[in-house]
């Protein structure tokens, strides 16, 4: 490799590394703003905004879904297996909504700690399997954990 090419190689490497470092620093500075949702633990530790609306997400706790007599108001508990939060929602739930499923709710948390949601989305996880396999895994208790309660490799 001659001198001119070596110089160009250094310039190209410097460009890519420079942009990489700058973007990494910027992303680390904006880390909290890039979070799509806060976990109940984040809310408990006061990391979530208290004056404006935000998203929270977790698994719907087994047996916690309660429907009001009006038929459209639901309340349920979401959990990240460390902290829990009660969510109150009035509206139509997504098809994938069920106990044990991951959900993301957008709304505000009141002074009583109850989260009032404006909308609720279901979050699917990365596990794909046919119904028979899911049934047998459930029976043997080997169902993989939903990704929402796994530890994340935080930046």
């Amino acid at each position: 490799m001659n001198a001119v090419r070596r110089r160009r190689l250094l310039l190209v490497s410097a460009l890519v590394i420079g942009v990489g470092v700058a973007v990494t620093l910027a992303l680390m500075a904006f880390r909290q703003n890039l979070m799509y949702y806060y976990t109940p633990t984040d809310v408990h530790e006061g990391k979530a905004p208290s004056t404006r609306s935000f998203r929270t997400g977790g698994l719907v706790k087994q047996g916690s879904l309660h429907r009001d007599p009006d038929g459209v108001t639901v309340r349920f508990t979401i959990t990240d297996l460390k902290q829990e939060m009660i969510v109150l929602y009035r509206g139509i739930l997504p098809d994938l909504f069920r106990e044990g499923q991951g959900i993301i709710a957008n709304g505000r948390v009141g002074p009583n700690g109850v989260f009032t949601a404006k909308d609720v989305l279901a979050k699917h996880d990365e596990n794909y399997m046919p119904p028979e396999v899911a049934a047998s895994l459930k029976k043997s208790g080997a169902m993989p954990q939903h990704e929402m309660v796994k530890e994340k490799n935080k930046l």
Binding site: R31, L34, Y37, M129, P144
Partner: peptide, 24 residues
């Protein structure tokens, strides 16, 4: 790195086998 509505990768190297059933 961040929380996301999108699910994690099903096709992540060695874990691929665990997250998607062979027939799929």
């Amino acid at each position: 790195w961040w929380t996301s509505l999108h699910q994690g990768s099903t096709t992540r190297g060695m874990q691929f086998a665990a997250t998607i059933y062979p027939s799929m």
